[in-house]
Design a binder for these strands. Sequence first.
DNA 1: ACCGTCATGTAATCGGTTACATGATTCT
DNA 2: AGAATCATGTAACCGATTACATGACGGT
Lengths: 179, 179
Amino acid sequence: MSDVRLTTSSFFVLGIIDKLGEASPYDVKTEAARTVAPFWSMPHAQVYAQCDRLLEGGLLSQVRRESGRNRRVLTLTGQGLAVLRGWLDDPEFVPVEARERGILKLWFGGRPDVLAPAQLGEHEKTLRGYEELVGGVGELGELLAPGQREALEFGIRYERMMIDFWEWARHRDERTQDR
Amino acid sequence: MSDVRLTTSSFFVLGIIDKLGEASPYDVKTEAARTVAPFWSMPHAQVYAQCDRLLEGGLLSQVRRESGRNRRVLTLTGQGLAVLRGWLDDPEFVPVEARERGILKLWFGGRPDVLAPAQLGEHEKTLRGYEELVGGVGELGELLAPGQREALEFGIRYERMMIDFWEWARHRDERTQDR
DNA sequence: ACCGTCATGTAATCGGTTACATGATTCT
DNA sequence: AGAATCATGTAACCGATTACATGACGGT
């Protein structure tokens, strides 16, 4: 019940447990890896730590089971749900530095012709993965939970942007160079 | 001279000092704040820590001055320069999670109509800033150091992408809702 | 002489990562 | 019965953040 500082990791865990209804830390880890992983991830040690903290803060409640596996099952408390909802509805804008190492390298003089190919390859691969996901959903008529389609759309737009960017950088580099 | 683990923060400091030729930790901090800040930043305590580490690792050399201010002036050693160059030319792709809190909120059920306005406002503001920078450079014929134009281009494309995305999300939300 | 901010650092803390460890199942 | 992996955690370390502290210089 003591006051706990809530980081995005906290809300991440709260969010996953809310979606699952109840979950062991292991379930949280698994579900996260299966779904949000491309947009946000967390090592499992951290999941356990967060669960402990959230329990202590009264945002989660725990049932211990005597059977071997799934020894702890966690649920949001009323307070936990309220806190999660509050966060979700908070339009605060947190400026994010892109922290793209490739961009930093360019800044310090990294050469586009050296960097671009690998970047392009990887972004194209990721993009194909996303697009297949969306396509598959359409074909099979499966539904993505609300919010997931949005995240996927973001992913697609991000990857497309990066591909366009690196192509731009590479071509600009070719034009600029005098060899 | 002992082995130091190099993080991106290390290369960040090396990169800044390389650009400046020689610099005190304070100079590093100031230059970083003045230039790369929108894409990458680092609290000054960390700059001091990195300088110490890089010194210990033999990647920086230091001249102590007896005068009060700018007591330490740092320069890249040959090894430091080699390490920086090696990093710049390394095309390794490090997958970055976007870690956009807004996207995470959408994932967990955050409402686009609640979130979008603030996000749009901020991204538009940032975009205007970047575009003015590029425009100003063109008009005055100033030159950006190589790499900086690229970083700025990335920033512009990123912001445009985010604006388009949030507009998409908001409109999709309007269409989807049955009120 | 005094005040602000410039320049430089240190200390404490904490979240996150990596690595290690182990009992519980399930499969062969 | 033994191997594999499932599920659960702990421990140690480390980089990063926050906060505090202080001498130096420049302006009034």
